[in-house]
C-alpha cells in the first residue's frame, strides 16, 4: 500500500500523464464520432506535453537565463520546454488539417458518425 501512496503523492504528474494517454488512445480507438476521435488525438498529445513538462520540473529551479558570472543557481533544462512549444505548434497544424477534412466529409455525407458514414458510402 505504501509504495502506491508514495507514487501517487510524489509522482502524480506521471500518473495523470498515463491516464490522459490511455483516455486519449481509448477515444481514438473506440469513439464512433470522428470529431471525438480528433479530440482524443488532442488529449493524447496533451498527455505527452504534460510528460515533458513534468520531466523538466526541478524544485527551486530557475529559468535558464544565465547571467555573466552567475553560475551557482539551479537552472531547469530548457530542452523539454522547447520541445513542448514545438509539439504544440505541430499539434495545432494537425488539428487544423483534421478539422478541414471533417468539414469536407460533413458537407458531402451529412454525418460525422463512423457507422453511418460506412452505410452511406456502401450505398453509393
Amino acid at each position: 500500500m505504501t509504495p502506491l501512496v508514495d507514487v501517487l503523492t510524489s509522482r502524480y504528474a506521471y500518473v495523470l500523464f498515463a491516464l490522459l494517454l490511455g483516455i486519449g488512445l481509448y477515444m481514438i480507438v473506440s469513439s464512433q464520432n470522428l470529431v471525438k476521435k480528433v479530440i482524443g488525438l488532442n488529449l493524447f498529445q496533451t498527455a505527452l506535453f504534460l510528460f515533458f513538462i513534468a520531466s523538466a520540473y526541478l524544485a527551486g529551479g530557475q529559468a535558464p537565463i544565465v547571467h555573466h558570472g552567475g553560475k551557482e543557481a539551479t537552472y531547469v533544462s530548457p530542452l523539454p520546454q522547447v520541445i513542448v512549444l514545438t509539439a504544440i505548434v505541430v499539434g495545432i497544424a494537425v488539428t487544423a488539417v483534421a478539422l478541414a477534412l471533417l468539414v469536407r466529409i460533413y458537407a458531402e455525407y451529412g454525418t460525422l458518425e463512423e457507422d453511418v458514414l460506412r452505410e452511406v458510402r456502401s450505398d453509393d
Partner: peptide
C-alpha cells in the same frame, strides 16, 4: 469526399 475520409484516417493513425 472518399479521399477526405481516407486522408482523415491516415491523419489519425499517422499522428498517433
Amino acid at each position: 469526399a472518399p479521399a477526405a475520409v481516407a486522408a482523415l484516417k491516415y491523419l489519425i493513425v499517422g499522428t498517433t
